[in-house]
């Protein structure tokens, strides 16, 4: 049996006296599509930040591809193959769209020492994938909010991750745009990339996830088949009771 790609055990995080996450266990197998849901303030973003290295967890362990990640800086985790996109797009504003993608190519793909890729060709390919073909020479300031989200995803993909954490990549998008991003993530998963999707849009989550994980008030209250999880009384209470 293969060890899980991501293995989180007993992860906890506090801010002062506030318990943001408590004893989170999560196992993700290579190639899985996972939906992570929960009400606002349930700790989803804190979990993403602890996994990607932006925040340090106080208790518990995170293992990725057999390596212990605790104490490892965010850029090292990205190099190991754990990439994330930000909920609010954070483009490099003085760089062009293509140059935004060039940063992870230079600092992740080339740093892995597995040979160099043709940077302009790879940038064009990524931009084509997310629907920003021909926009490489523009500055991010000229993009719409939707296009910035696409750039955000493309930049995470440029690092050629094994696990991609997409933090609310679809918030505020139209029906059609949600479908576009969904198709993109599914295609990526087809090529072997494991994906954790954090999302409020239930239609997208249900259509995408093979497994659904629910966080409420810093605890994991459900983890399993989406159809079953969504009918779980505790989950219903958490969502409808508030």
């Amino acid at each position: 049996m293969n060890p899980p790609l991501l293995d989180v055990s007993g992860l906890g995080k506090r801010f002062g006296g506030f318990v943001a996450l408590e004893a989170i266990d999560l196992r993700v197998t290579e190639g899985e599509r996972i939906g992570l849901i929960g009400p606002n303030g349930s700790g989803k973003s804190t979990l993403v930040n602890c996994l990607s290295g932006t925040l340090r967890n106080e208790t518990g362990q995170v293992r990725f591809a057999g390596r212990l990640l605790d104490g490892m800086a965010a850029h090292q985790r990205t190099r190991l193959g754990l990439a994330r996109s930000f909920q609010l797009p954070r483009p490099f504003r003085s760089l062009t769209v293509a140059e935004n993608l060039q940063i992870p190519i230079e600092y992740v793909v080339h740093a892995r020492g597995e040979g160099r890729v043709d940077v302009p060709a790879r940038c064009a390919e990524l931009l084509g994938l997310v629907g920003l073909a021909g926009r490489g020479e523009e500055l991010p300031a000229g993009l719409t909010q939707v296009e910035m989200r696409k750039l955000e995803l493309a930049r995470a993909m440029a690092a050629e991750p094994r696990l991609l954490i997409a933090d609310e990549a679809m918030a505020g998008l139209s029906h059609q745009e949600v479908d576009d991003i969904l198709a993109l993530l599914l295609a990526l998963n087809d090529r072997g990339v494991t994906i954790i999707m954090i999302e409020h849009i239930m239609r997208a989550v249900m259509g995408f996830s093979q497994r659904l994980v629910v966080l409420v008030a810093g605890r994991k209250i459900a983890d399993g088949n989406p159809e079953e999880v969504i009918r779980n009384p505790e989950v219903e209470r958490a969502y409808l009771g508030e």
Partner: peptide, 18 residues
């Protein structure tokens, strides 16, 4: 390029492997 990424957004630069 790495310096420019830091100047623009340090958090995003880390996430992009810098």
């Amino acid at each position: 390029d790495g310096f420019a990424a830091i100047r623009d957004d340090e958090l995003a630069a880390e996430a992009a492997g810098v």
